[in-house]
Design a protein around this nucleic acid. Structure first.
Lengths: 189, 189
DNA sequence: AGTCGAATTTGATCTATATCAAAAGATTTC
DNA sequence: GAAATCTTTTGATATAGATCAAATTCGACT
């Protein structure tokens, strides 16, 4: 199964030779965990990157005691504690599974070694980061100046089935509105 | 002067051999342009990336006829029409100089060729994109759930001297508030 | 199936910030 | 250096969405 997942990943982010793939595989963990499992805790030093094969996860942080969702990850997407992973600082986020999931776990150190050793792997990494960057760019645009309804419509366009996987409260915080407001928007559809 | 600028860039994003630098230089344009010059127009196919050596620039788009600032770039920072440059689609942004400026212009094609040819250049590119990604991440966090004042304070922390370079209206739109609100926030300091 | 706790909905009220409008200050231009 | 234009400030009002509170629905567990 791992080979199959890796094939899917490389088809999206860039081909890798068998040699590289074998070396990469030597440090990949494959996990099957249940809904609610915390992959990363705020304040922890984390150097892990995850890839969701089945299921879904969320990254969130607390503001005034309330959870605010920062990032969702569904099947075939990556997720990490962004500031922790890229800056080597204590994580500002929690990461938690929102459904029973099968996922891969990678290590920053090993990823960096591979990137430094193999040009192809470096390109692969760049492509993955570029995708994250473009997703963030889109979010900034709609968070900057749009109504609650516009934000929600935009999110549904990006993730038409998000409601099957993520609770109303988490969705609301992700688009920067309260859950009451989101509930009312839904009601008048 | 070009060598000096390149030295500054590579010190930040990753060392490059003289060979690579020479090849890179063969396709760099150095421009001296005045405030208000449009570097990129919305709807145009653009494959240009800019680096501000002196001065500043903004990327913006129009919503309901009003300009909304998306990205500012000051001395020693890059700027491009993000969707145009990375996705090869017509630009969703205008880019305009906000002061008289000296800047470098790069070409996506040449950047890509260099990235494909030289592992070091690929790493260099990845570092630059990672920085952009992290900046966007920060913006998302404060756009998601914070008051007008919190946004403004955060921006000042990031760019303490922004008011010397960017107009109140542009700053307001960048943090997602109206200029009247920003003016009132300033008044009560 | 019935109980308990969590998630969602609905209602009433409040408030931060938008909107509209006009005045005051700056900056550019000829 | 006066006119014209652009930017910022100030004032009055409107409103989207927050907040607080309670009722309802949904799901998990025994």
């Amino acid at each position: 199964m791992l080979d199959e997942i890796i094939a899917k990943i490389t088809s999206e982010y860039g081909t890798l030779s068998n040699e590289i793939i074998e070396e990469w595989k030597s440090d990949i963990l494959m996990l099957e965990l249940e809904k609610g499992t915390q992959l990363v805790r705020e304040g922890s030093y984390t150097n892990k990157l995850f890839y969701i094969y089945k299921g879904s996860a969320k990254a969130y942080h607390l503001k005034d005691g309330k959870a605010i969702a920062d990032w969702f990850s569904f099947e075939h997407e990556f997720i990490c504690a962004i500031t922790g992973y890229f800056l080597g600082r204590p994580s500002e986020h929690y990461i938690e599974l929102t459904e029973d999931s099968i996922l891969l776990e990678f290590n920053r150190k090993h990823i960096n070694i591979l990137s430094n050793t193999y040009h192809d792997f470096e390109r692969f990494t760049r492509n993955a980061i570029t995708k994250i960057m473009l997703q963030l760019q889109k979010r900034v645009v709609y968070l900057q100046f749009s109504t609650a309804k516009e934000r929600y419509d935009f999110l549904l366009q990006e993730y038409p089935k998000i409601e099957l996987h993520i609770s109303l409260g988490d969705i609301a915080s992700y688009i920067g509105i309260t859950q009451e407001t989101l509930s009312r928007i839904r009601a008048q559809k």
